[in-house]
Design a protein around this nucleic acid. Structure first.
Lengths: 328, 328
DNA sequence: TTGTATGCGTTATCAT
DNA sequence: ATGATAACGCATACAA
């Protein structure tokens, strides 16, 4: 049987209420009995029960956090940012991890909602807007990296980032620039649009090839692109993971990124920072986004009925070694 | 006020107990009333309360998971492995994230313990053995990447891995091989030992330089090593993160890894897989370790009194492009 | 199949 | 400062 407050109380010769106060060191307990209680607890090996505590105190004081994928360290930055402000506000965090293909979004969000969290901060949801909105009726939601109308959202302007990346390639002299796009079903279309409109504005032909979030698939799709007639001289990938796949495809063919073919990624995640083949990438400043998200979450707790707030930040292009002028 | 089972029950014209059964679709509810209950719940916007549910069902059915650092995707693999078997066994996972310097280990473990989890799977603890053992008296613990006597542990043989890495460098012809070591305080000494003994056995002088888990510090420490008289021709870093720092230091000095200086990392994390400067690294197979850990956790639940079990696996060296013969 | 009653371990309220 | 007692929302034996 598990040791409860009751046991500690009787061992220390006091009431349960005092034990409770003592363990949360709240005023109303003399220093002497407090010590007696704590040492009684220690002797018994008492471990306070947070589940019961949360029930008794009517839940709350906890933020739910959904992370799309632990393999992408952008999410580590996002989490770090949120944790900083959560710590400052004395809020606990409860984590849920999704899957690369979005297949666990609903399930994880549901668990978080049922866990009596005040708000769920969702980093990188992929489920349809309609479902997101549906979820938001069950728990307050802060959507990050993904803007959803009428829902608190923290987004980085993907269109802006994609424009900058595309412009960079055009300015280097590239004319055949392909975009390796994420699946259109997940709601992230701005990078594609930013790319396409910049190409069109420059009088160039947009070439969109759809791929997935997996490095392997991206390598295969990029490979097909390279092997076909009229290969592009530059490839802009929807994120770094896909860009790694592009690099794989290049190296497999003996091509050097930044020379025969330029490559740009998106997210500025850790693999892009490897020296040598340092990937030119768009930096979204995950830590800042994470902080913003947590701030919105706190605001939502403070005023549950406030109208939804959107925060938009602007990413910056990090030019590294995988982009250069096209060969003559 | 929050909507409870009571509300749903009265709306559906049944008792609380039936609502409970219906929502967990357990036998004992006619299909007809089940539907009535669920739609009543939907109309009211009822969200089941897991906190209360866990209290009522005496906790359990949950594994705690401690992750040292989300920025290192080895932990993503470990988590993935554990999640696979947890899913298979119908166990929930509750996550806690530590800090790079181990400064949050105790606090996070404490939270997990108080959350009524059956076992805590700890990936990459850094706190002293004594404290680990102390924690293990409060919650069953499965220690991963770190072996602790008398405690369920899943480890990769670091000594073995370090030997393989060092041997690889020696066989390439290197004689001045430095080891960039983690802080000695965190309990991970086997890589250092494996390195040192292999060097000594080959009649070479071990050169250990202590650094931290941060890439920047590693870059600085490696830089100092390179700038001093008698620089090594190869550097073996205690993990990939530190190895990235070494690469930074090399590139800053115009040196090419695998040519002027060979570099080996440890963990085979994603940055090491970037083509071009692909880092030679020791692969620990995180997914397999994560699976093993979860299996041990389940075993511990099944037989709480069983003696502690250790599982050891053997890492493999992944030779890539950052290692080569020393220049003549 | 359905309803009733009790308990889970804690916090909060109200006495003393 | 300390103690008694009622929630908290649900699961679960048990009765009907």
């Amino acid at each position: 049987m598990r040791i409860t407050m009751e046991d500690v109380a009787s061992r220390a010769g006091v009431s349960r209420a005092l034990v409770s106060l003592a363990y949360r060191d709240r005023p109303g307990v003399s220093t002497e009995t407090r010590d007696r209680i704590l040492s009684a607890g220690r002797e018994l090996g008492y471990v306070p029960n947070r589940v019961a505590a949360r029930l008794a105190s009517r839940g709350g004081n906890t933020l739910g956090v959904f992370l799309q994928d632990l393999h992408n360290d952008l999410f580590a930055d996002l989490f770090e940012g949120s944790r900083t402000v959560a710590d400052g506000a004395g809020k606990q965090l409860m984590l849920g991890v999704g899957a690369l293909d979005g297949g666990r979004d609903a399930e994880v969000l549901e668990t978080l909602a049922q866990s009596w969290v005040d708000v769920v901060i969702a980093f990188g949801l992929q489920m349809p807007d309609a479902e997101v909105r549906e979820m938001a009726e069950r728990v307050p939601l802060v959507c990050v990296l993904r803007g959803v109308a009428d829902i608190d959202s923290v987004v980085s302007d993907n269109r802006h980032g994609a424009r900058a990346a595309t412009r960079h390639l055009i300015e280097l002299g590239h004319r055949e620039i392909a975009f390796l796009a994420n699946p259109p079903s997940d709601g992230y279309m701005d990078r594609r649009h930013g790319y396409a409109e910049t190409m069109t504005a420059a009088g160039l032909r947009p070439r969109v090839v759809e791929t997935t979030y997996s490095r392997e698939t991206a390598a295969a799709d990029a490979g097909a692109l390279l092997d076909a007639g009229d290969p592009p001289t530059a490839i802009f990938a929807h994120n770094d993971q896909a860009a790694m796949g592009v690099l794989d495809a290049l190296f497999r063919r003996g091509l050097t990124p930044g020379r025969e073919v330029s490559v740009v990624g998106y997210d500025n995640s850790s693999p892009s920072k490897v020296p040598g083949v340092a990937l030119t990438s768009v930096d979204v400043d995950g830590v800042a986004l994470g902080r913003s998200a947590a701030e919105l979450a706190l605001r939502r707790i403070a005023s549950p009925m406030a109208p939804a707030e959107w925060r938009t930040s602007f990413p910056t292009l990090m030019v590294r070694t995988t982009t250069g002028p096209p060969l003559p």
